[in-house]
C-alpha cells in the first residue's frame, strides 16, 4: 500500500477538529456539576434533571414540534403541486417567471421574509381582524411560505430526473391523466416528497429569525427559548438540551444511512440474481 501523505492526514485532523471541538466541548460541559459554565466542577447529571423538570422547555419543544409537523405536511402538499406544475404542465405563458419566483424564497434573506410577513399579518389584522394575535398560527403560516419553495425544488428535480415515458406508457395503456398521476407519478415521487417533508420539518424546527418576527407574546419556539436564555448568560441546562439534540440527530442520520446501505445491497443482490 502507498504511504499516506502526512500533510493530507494533518489537514484532515485539523478540519475535523475545527468542526467538532465546539460540539465536544458542549457535550462535556453538559455533564459539569458547576453552575458556572467554564469552570469544571466534577461529573453530574443535575442539568439533565433540571431540564426534564422545566415546564417552559417542554412547552416550547412541543410547540416547535407541532409547528414543524403542520408546516411540513402543508408545505409538502403545496410544494408538490407547484413542482408538478412546473415540471409536467408543459410550456405556458410566464413559466420561467413562475419558476424563478418559486425559488426566490430560497435566496431571500430571512430578515426580509420575516419582516414582510409581519407586515402582512399586521395589515390583515387591521383589515379583517384576523389574526387577532400572533403565535402558533402565524409562525406556521410563515414557515409554510418558505419551506414550500424547498419542497417544490426537490419535487421538480426528482420529476425531471424521472423519465416521462413511464407516464406516457400508462396513458398509452388507457390511464387518464389524473389516474396516471395517482398510479404512477405520485408513487414514484414518494421518496422525493418524504425528503421534502423532512427538510421542511427540520427547517421549521431550526428557524429562529422568521419565528421571532411573526411570533407574539407567550409563543416561544425552542430556538427562541434557547436564544433568549443564552442572552441572559450561559446556562448549563441549555448545554444538556443541546447534547440531547445532537445525539438525536446523530442517531437519526446513522439509522437513515444504514437503511439506505441495506437497500442498495439488496438491489445489487437482485441485479446479480437477474443476470445470473
Amino acid at each position: 500500500m502507498k504511504k499516506r501523505s502526512t500533510f493530507l492526514f494533518s489537514a484532515l485532523c485539523f478540519g475535523m477538529a475545527f468542526l467538532y471541538i465546539p460540539m465536544v466541548l458542549l457535550v462535556v460541559y453538559s455533564f459539569n456539576h458547576s453552575r458556572l459554565v467554564p469552570v469544571w466542577g466534577g461529573f453530574s447529571l443535575r442539568w439533565y434533571k433540571s431540564l426534564f423538570t422545566s415546564e417552559e422547555i417542554w412547552n416550547s419543544l412541543l410547540l416547535s414540534l407541532q409547528i414543524a409537523v403542520v408546516n411540513a405536511t402543508f408545505a409538502t402538499l403545496l410544494g408538490t403541486f407547484a413542482g408538478l406544475t412546473i415540471a409536467r404542465f408543459g410550456r405556458f405563458r410566464g413559466r420561467t417567471l413562475f419558476t424563478g419566483m418559486l425559488s426566490a424564497p430560497l435566496v431571500m434573506p430571512e430578515v426580509i421574509t420575516g419582516l414582510s410577513l409581519l407586515l402582512l399579518f399586521i395589515t390583515l389584522n387591521e383589515l379583517l381582524g384576523w389574526p387577532s394575535s400572533r403565535g402558533m398560527t402565524t409562525i406556521t403560516i410563515a414557515h409554510i411560505t418558505f419551506s414550500l419553495a424547498y419542497v417544490a425544488v426537490i419535487v421538480q428535480s426528482r420529476l425531471s430526473g424521472m423519465a416521462q415515458d413511464l407516464e406516457e406508457a400508462a396513458q398509452d395503456l388507457g390511464g387518464k391523466p389524473l389516474r396516471v398521476m395517482f398510479d404512477i407519478t405520485l408513487p414514484l415521487l414518494a421518496p422525493g416528497m418524504l425528503a421534502g417533508w423532512l427538510l421542511a420539518f427540520t427547517l421549521s424546527l431550526d428557524d429562529l429569525v422568521i419565528a421571532s418576527f411573526v411570533s407574539g407574546p407567550g409563543a416561544n419556539t425552542l430556538p427562541m427559548l434557547i436564544y433568549s436564555r443564552v442572552r441572559l448568560g450561559l446556562r448549563p441546562d441549555i448545554n444538556a438540551l443541546a447534547t440531547i439534540i445532537i445525539f438525536t440527530v446523530a442517531v437519526g442520520v446513522a439509522l437513515a444511512g444504514w437503511l439506505l446501505l441495506r437497500q442498495r445491497k439488496q438491489r445489487e443482490r437482485d441485479m446479480r440474481m437477474a443476470s445470473a
Partner: peptide
C-alpha cells in the same frame, strides 16, 4: 393516447 386502439413498446421499455 388513452383512447386509441394502439399500444406502444417504448425504447426504454418504461
Amino acid at each position: 393516447a388513452y383512447r386509441r386502439p394502439v399500444n406502444m413498446m417504448f425504447q426504454s421499455y418504461a
